[in-house]
Design a protein around this nucleic acid. Sequence first.
DNA 1: TAGATTGTTAATCGATTAACAATC
DNA 2: TAGATTGTTAATCGATTAACAATC
Lengths: 209, 209
Amino acid sequence: MSKGISRPTLKRLPLYMHYLKRIQGEGVEFASSSLLASEFGFDPTQVRKDLAATGEVGIARRGFEIVALIKAIEELLGWNNISDAFLVGVGNLGSALLGYDFSSNGIHILAAFDTDERKIGSRINDKKVFSLNNIKDLAERMKVKVGIITVPAQHAQSVADLMLDAGFEAIWNFAAVPLKVPEDILVENVRLSTSLAILTNRLKEKYKK
Amino acid sequence: MSKGISRPTLKRLPLYMHYLKRIQGEGVEFASSSLLASEFGFDPTQVRKDLAATGEVGIARRGFEIVALIKAIEELLGWNNISDAFLVGVGNLGSALLGYDFSSNGIHILAAFDTDERKIGSRINDKKVFSLNNIKDLAERMKVKVGIITVPAQHAQSVADLMLDAGFEAIWNFAAVPLKVPEDILVENVRLSTSLAILTNRLKEKYKK
DNA sequence: TAGATTGTTAATCGATTAACAATC
DNA sequence: TAGATTGTTAATCGATTAACAATC
């Protein structure tokens, strides 16, 4: 039935979105694949393939209608339908994420959880912090299916297990360990050390020359 | 001369590192490609190819010596040689990063910069915050070549331009826009919206079924 | 020794890029 | 109309996976 968009394509679509919104604000109405390609250093054919995944069709000699294209990308990414989320781990990174508004990226953080008594009951960036003991109860009551893990690596798996027990369907994991979860549970990892690995390796290579 | 390790391999090596350190702490001395592969759900051949990039050779029937392997991965990633870095943008995310210790991942954040008068002169997580006007002067004096950008998207390019002018060689960019920099400048992007795009798209697909 | 694991070559798979007729 | 841009098919490229002799 569904195509199942490839990972590389899914990673490029938000870039297009951001740029399209920007030039739309400048009054531009159409964008060609070569315009997008040159902005990002991609191949125009690749851009057309990516955009084809949205179902939008372009017009020869003009390109794609920006309004319709933005809407189609939003739908494809699931950003037109916001899911509620709980965040666990109110440390530096967790607090930072509580200050972000991800509502144009498909999620809304409802509340946060921690085990530190001093944090429980407080508000961080206007989000209430609850005891981790209450997560199952609250998730079931509020029908929350998306969890964000910002605890230290050694506690990440036990937090994930709690989330699974509470019926979560998807986990956005910022901890530096791979989570062991059933096949049907979605996990997306954000690994800062991986990102740094690429940067520092390339830097070393650069200085070697 | 140098091979130029592929991006997929560079992304997997930190995973191996983390796991190797963990089991080393449990007293394990050798790790086979199949052990690592099963831990992460990879193919054992792929693990061997990755490890071959480090130059370490395994021993048939035993695997790789963990102590030597960790050292070899560290060297390959450039994590044995710590680069000083400056961070620009002391908001939620910037403050969070200032609280992290990246010294085992090849960088050390020396100081932070911002344009907000209320932040300048303060200390966040024990890192001093300077006026952005001083970045070139300080970078030249302290020989800093790595910049971290945690400002809002609309200011990211101008911060990058300042860094280039100050002689920076590498930028770790957390802003949601691609930076336009000369070819020889390294940029590594961390894009939360891209990561969310994959999660929310898969979630939508999951509910569709 | 027997057999698990290595390093490496060959086959497969998937994504990117090139080529080009159709179209506005 | 002329020609820029589309959608799509074919060729290329690079990474993953399979196969297997060598080895401890």
